[in-house]
């Protein structure tokens, strides 16, 4: 590996952040500019949404189930097993549903976008597109961002619901709870801010997944190896970014709703 000076390194990083911000900004402003590529959005929505459905279903079910299993264990020690529905519900809706769905979709789609756009860069297809008078930001990036944000929102809701289902299976079959009691407490405990928090997060995460994936794709250099590198980096960066933003978004929303 080549050694680079700290100043050079810092300059590269600042430039990368600038480029990323530019891409992220463009992906939004392009929404208000023609042409808009509806067909491409639909195609991406299908790819991201329906394509991710199986993994999201499984993730949701098992996360809810294991959350119930762990919580029940703890709650039993305090003799308050009846709180299980509430715990699973709040945990899934505010935190685990959005974050795990985000991470799963990041693993699947950030990498997909990075490798697809990266291959197009190294084979000059992006240059060819620009040469044909089409803006790749509008044609490729914006549709991916829009459909990821849109689809992740619904995927998260599905994951939340399946988490509750997974929890209820554990609660009734393993801990012998009354299923009616589980579901009614699970619903009742959810207040507006829980739902609001839980539904704001996927919007942020969807944006991160698509912009990070597209950024690493569009900046891929150095042949197929470069594309491979871009793909891994995209998943790592998107996942870390999701976890960071999750913390700050949670803190921020709590402050708004006046907890702590």
């Amino acid at each position: 590996m080549e050694l680079i000076s700290p100043a050079e390194f810092a300059k590269d990083k600042v430039q990368a952040i600038q480029e990323y911000s530019f891409l992220a900004g463009q992906s939004v402003t392009n929404l208000f500019r023609r042409p808009r590529y509806m067909a491409d959005m639909m195609q991406q929505a299908d790819l991201i949404g329906f394509g991710s459905l199986p993994i999201v279903v499984l993730t949701g079910l098992f996360t809810g189930a294991v959350l119930a299993l762990n919580s029940a264990n703890t709650l039993q020690r305090f003799g308050s097993l009846s709180l299980l529905g509430q715990l699973v519900s709040v945990g899934m809706v505010t935190e685990l549903g959005p974050v795990l769905t985000g991470l799963m979709v990041a693993g699947r789609n950030s990498s997909g976008m990075a490798s697809e756009l990266g291959s197009m860069i190294v084979t000059e297809q992006i240059d060819a597109m620009r040469a044909l008078g089409t803006d790749p930001m509008k044609k490729l990036v914006t549709p991916r961002v829009v459909s990821t944000v849109f689809m992740l929102f619904f995927l998260t809701i599905i994951s939340d619901l399946l988490g509750l289902v997974g929890g209820s299976v554990v609660a009734t079959l393993i801990f012998g709870m009354d299923s009616h009691q589980y579901w009614s407490t699970a619903w009742q405990v959810l207040v507006f801010q829980d739902v609001f928090t839980g539904l704001t997060k996927p919007l942020l995460f969807g944006f991160i997944i698509a912009t990070v994936g597209c950024y690493y794709g569009m900046t891929a250099r150095g042949g197929t190896q470069g594309v491979g590198r871009a793909t891994t980096q995209a998943v790592v960066a998107a996942s870390v970014f999701i976890l960071l933003v999750d913390f700050f978004a949670t803190k921020f929303l709590m402050a708004i709703f006046g907890y702590r």
Binding site: S119, M120, T123, E124, Q125, D127, A128, A131
Partner: peptide
């Protein structure tokens, strides 16, 4: 383009 650069 040199290598055609068709959309694959």
């Amino acid at each position: 383009f040199q290598e055609s650069a068709l959309f694959d």
